[in-house]
Measured scan of single mutants.
Amino acid sequence: CHSECLGNCSQPDDPTKCVACRNFYLDGRCVETCPPPYYHFQDWRCVNFSFCQDLHHKCKNSRRQGCHQYVIHNNKCIPECPSGYTMNSSNLLCTPCLGPCPKVCHLLEGEKTIDSVTSAQELRGCTVINGSLIINIRGGNNLAAELEANLGLIEEISGYLKIRRSYALVSLSFFRKLRLIRGETLEIGNYSFYALDNQNLRQLWDWSKHNLTITQGKLFFHYNPKLCLSEIHKMEEVSGTKGRQERNDIALKTNGDQASCENELLKFSYIRTSFDKILLRWEPYWPPDFRDLLGFMLFYKEAPYQNVTEFDGQDACGSNSWTVVDIDPPLRSNDPKSQNHPGWLMRGLKPWTQYAIFVKTLVTFSDERRTYGAKSDIIYVQTDATNPSVPLDPISVSNSSSQIILKWKPPSDPNGNITHYLVFWERQAEDSELFELDYCLKGLKLPSRTWSPPFESEDSQKHNQSEYEDSAGECCSCPKTDSQILKELEESSFRKTFEDYLHNVVFVPRKT
């Protein structure tokens, strides 16, 4: 048989008469490798580009789960590009990614509803959504962080984005990388972005840091009482949809009607710091009717980097990364020049730590249904340095008659930039024990000054392991946590139920 035959053949030295091919099969003959313009397919066939392209389009058009959109890589027609490569849609070739590779997620039936953290986790790592997304989240724990972890990498949506009755959302900033909504599939009414009845939605994105392009379709905003109209108009300008909307697409009466839409800028007039305090004062603000001013709200939190936005980490279910302080308005003076500047002394802060701070007014709604208010920009203030805590785990070892090696770990709280350490030492008198000992005694162990690591005695271990207080009263049991108490109650309830079950099964009433 021919060298490319495997198993047997019907005619000697003829690659077209093989029972099976050793390498690849091409047009009725066995070959060692697939010549151009053919590609290896499933490690035994040679196919042309049209064959591989037909497989790709067949799966793409069917949208069946589990099928493969075949691509070409290293002269092979394979189910998908290997790690580190992405497909070129024009020629199906796998090309190296520039940075992290995109991950295209194809949605069944063309859309997916995100109504819980669990459903959001199914899209973790996706960068391109081939379909439409509907966000409908009523509640949950730590929602802002969970949504950002699972949806934060999405850069492109081919269909539309719909935010509907998501009472738990305060902001859409968890879509931190969303840059493009194509609108290839539109919501009824030709809408590519749809926001309806979101009672706590206050911000779409921080438009000073976020760009969003909507290729096709219109915007729809109705019944978002805490979303200011200025935020919607800003989205029109940034996304390129200005002029597409009709009169009733953006409701003037049901958007922002319960919001404090600040239209003035508060400026800080005085800032002073110490290692654990920050004193702030800002310019006074009074609405047209000074009785509408209820006070100020001061927001602050630790910020290692200057990239904080107002609604980071917030949701309507209680999660809030900001510390909020309510401040009463100052006494009002008739003389504008003698107006008191409101302020606040922030206490209990960490030394040498940068804080993000902003302040906003708290006002009631005027009778004319106009909203007044003022808010400052987010500023960054760093507390002063102070003395560091003591170095940890000092170790001293003498390696000769004239040297001592000293080692330690950095302090747990540096409280500033540590530039150097101060080492103090003092000579001590020799131990009298060394002169009084009889060095001729056998088995004498000389006193040693070398360091030995501390260890816990058996008594201390027994005390720590004991669940009861000892007789001397030195140790006591740790208080039980809520989960331990709940577990004990469940076990007790189970024992009672099981005992009742045994009584009912074992003891049967005697027939009379």
Results as ranks from 00 to 15, higher is better:
His106Gly: 09
His106Lys: 11
Leu108Tyr: 14
Glu109His: 15
Gly110Asn: 06
Thr118Asp: 07
Thr118Val: 11
Ala120Met: 13
Glu122Thr: 14
Leu123Arg: 03
Arg124Leu: 08
Gly125Trp: 05
Val128Tyr: 07
Ile129Ser: 01
Asn130Lys: 06
Ser132Thr: 11
Leu133Ala: 04
Leu133Met: 11
Ile135Thr: 00
Gly139Val: 15
Asn141Phe: 08
Glu146Tyr: 15
Leu151Ser: 01
Leu153Trp: 13
Ile154Ser: 02
Glu155Val: 04
Ile157Pro: 01
Gly159Asp: 01
Leu161Ile: 12
Arg164Pro: 07
Ser166Phe: 14
Tyr167Pro: 10
Leu169Arg: 01
Val170Ser: 07
Phe174Val: 08
Phe174Thr: 06
Arg179Tyr: 14
Arg179His: 14
Gly183Arg: 05
Gly189Trp: 09
Ser192Cys: 10
Ala195Tyr: 04
Arg202Leu: 06
Leu204Pro: 06
Trp205Gln: 04
Asp206Ala: 12
Ser208Ala: 14
Asn211Gln: 07
Gly217Trp: 11
His222Glu: 13
His222Trp: 06
His222Thr: 15
Tyr223Thr: 02
Pro225Glu: 05
Lys226Asp: 03
Leu227Gln: 06
Leu227Trp: 01
Cys228Leu: 03
Cys228Val: 03
Leu229Ile: 00
Glu236Thr: 14
Thr241Asp: 09
Gly243Arg: 12
Gln245Asp: 12
Glu246Ile: 03
Asn248Cys: 15
Thr254Glu: 04
Asn255Arg: 04
Glu262Asn: 00
Leu266Lys: 02
Lys267Thr: 11
Ser269Ile: 15
Ser269Arg: 14
Ile271Arg: 01
Thr273Val: 15
Asp276Val: 01
Leu279Pro: 01
Leu279Ser: 06
Pro287Ile: 02
Arg291Pro: 01
Leu293His: 00
Leu294Cys: 07
Leu294Gly: 02
Phe296Ser: 00
Leu298Glu: 01
Glu302Asp: 10
Pro304Phe: 10
Tyr305Arg: 07
Asn307Trp: 10
Thr309Ser: 15
Phe311Asn: 11
Gln314Val: 09
Asn320Pro: 05
Asp326Val: 06
Pro329Arg: 13
Pro329Ser: 06
Pro330Phe: 11
Ser333His: 13
Ser333Trp: 02
Leu349Ser: 03
Leu349Gln: 04
Thr353Leu: 07
Ala356Ile: 12
Ile357Thr: 10
Phe358Trp: 10
Val359Glu: 00
Lys360Asp: 02
Lys360Leu: 00
Phe365Val: 12
Arg369Leu: 07
Arg369His: 05
Thr371Glu: 07
Gly373Arg: 03
Ala374Pro: 11
Ser376Pro: 02
Ser376Lys: 04
Ile378Lys: 08
Tyr380Ser: 12
Gln382Val: 15
Thr383Trp: 01
Ala385Ser: 06
Pro388Val: 15
Pro388Leu: 10
Val390Leu: 09
Ile395Ser: 06
Ser396Leu: 07
Asn399Val: 08
Asn399Ala: 09
